[in-house]
Write a protein that binds this DNA or RNA. Structure first.
Lengths: 225, 225
DNA sequence: ACTTTCTTTATAAAACTTTTATGCAAAGCG
DNA sequence: CGCTTTGCATAAAAGTTTTATAAAGAAAGT
């Protein structure tokens, strides 16, 4: 699974460091910006899954940055602030903040609020589809389509195809495939593989006698393309 | 503009009254429930735009109510609590709460968080009706129609179908379904599932011998389409 | 007490995997 | 070159696992 990216916009280096360590160790990928301007540019060039925005920035008020971001950025923005005044919270939320946390914050609570916010993002989430010519392999749904039409694969067939799809263009040795699909101890059962590649080709190839997707690399293994 | 409806689930009458006055005077329509059970029933019969849920209810833990609601209700739920413990907050957010406020809360902050939550409802306004061919599954109303005609399903049948509908097109493993419907500890009881899928098919499939909606993925699980 | 729903067991059928057999083609070799 | 060997593909038989269904017993709801 891909790690979600979180952009931290905060001028205090020690806070950034603390957040970086906390978030990285919880499986997030961390991006950082020291000023609001820098943060906006970073977010625009590569939109993260979530933004942690400090309200008290040197160049511009965090509230302005928030507004600016909200003009186009529609994923989660969590505000961090040393202030805890009601007007500040109200203003931030009304400007489109997803959530508001006062510094010093409690780590577990921050992480929970991050999870909650990201979960909300995911309603409009992208899928994990590998495309290869006329084939679309949806790893999350465990489905394979050929020209849009759902194919019926057995479990082992799918597992093999999925392995191929995740290693598109690379030559996979018999040895490797057997180990991945059947586990260690089956690495010499090359015949299994021939049978299953045969049935896969029947299902996914336009012309199984002249396979274009699963190509034989004689003496070595197979290559998917 | 129509007034947004907010359902308050709280056992303390004076809190309900306070909230009612505050919210009504800010243009919301207020519904009330004294117990968790009552709240769930009210929410199901007429889904509000937002639910304010007190965690410390007499009949059931608010956390359980939250989970129950989240099986089908996907608009905002804000938790109110006299507690302020980190574990409590984390638990609530991970169970799908939109936000968490400690009592006593500040009115303006509550209103701002309500506005924020409702605003997000509108952006991620997902339809609660899943359509699949001749089937219409209304997750909020817990009803299923086939060609417009209301079907009579048992509770477990509905729960399973609802899980399928919320994961249309993807393969759900036996393991996963059993965990979701029966809970951890039942993950090996694959036979339960077979029986219920059988009876579901009898009710929803045109031809149960050749199911088009609930397709079995041998060795893995089922796929709904 | 009666009806409905859920759990459990038994068994036949279907689907899938493994194994065996056979043919073909390319490569190696005297 | 002709023969043998090796690797690959395919079909089909054999074996195993998984699934569907009925039906009986238990539990729950009214």
């Amino acid at each position: 699974m891909n790690r979600a990216e979180i952009l931290i916009i905060d001028d205090e280096p020690q806070i950034r460091k603390l957040l970086e360590i906390t978030l990285e160790s919880n499986g997030y990928k961390v991006l950082q910006a020291e000023t609001g301007r820098e943060g906006v540019i970073q977010a625009a060039s590569h939109p993260p899954e979530l933004i942690l925005l400090d309200i008290g920035l040197p160049d511009k008020s965090g509230h302005e940055i928030l507004k600016e971001l909200r003009e186009w950025y529609n994923k989660a923005i969590i505000i961090l602030s040393v202030q805890n005044s009601e007007t500040d919270i109200v203003k931030a939320l009304d400007n489109g903040a997803t959530d508001y946390l006062s510094k010093p914050f409690r780590t577990a609570e921050l992480l929970a609020r991050i999870r909650s916010a990201i979960r909300r993002n995911e309603t409009s989430n992208k899928n994990t589809v590998v495309e290869a010519g006329d084939l679309q392999i949806d790893l999350a749904a465990r489905s394979v389509r050929k020209n849009g039409e759902l194919l019926k694969l057995t479990s082992t067939e799918y597992n093999i195809l999925s392995l191929f799809a995740r290693n598109e263009g690379r030559v996979l040795t018999h040895h490797f495939i057997l180990k991945e699909i059947w586990g260690v101890g089956y690495q010499t059962e090359t015949q299994y593989l021939r049978v299953f590649v045969g049935s896969l080709r029947k299902k996914i190839e336009e012309n199984p006698d002249n396979p274009r997707h699963i190509v034989t690399e004689s003496g070595v293994g197979y290559r998917f393309q």
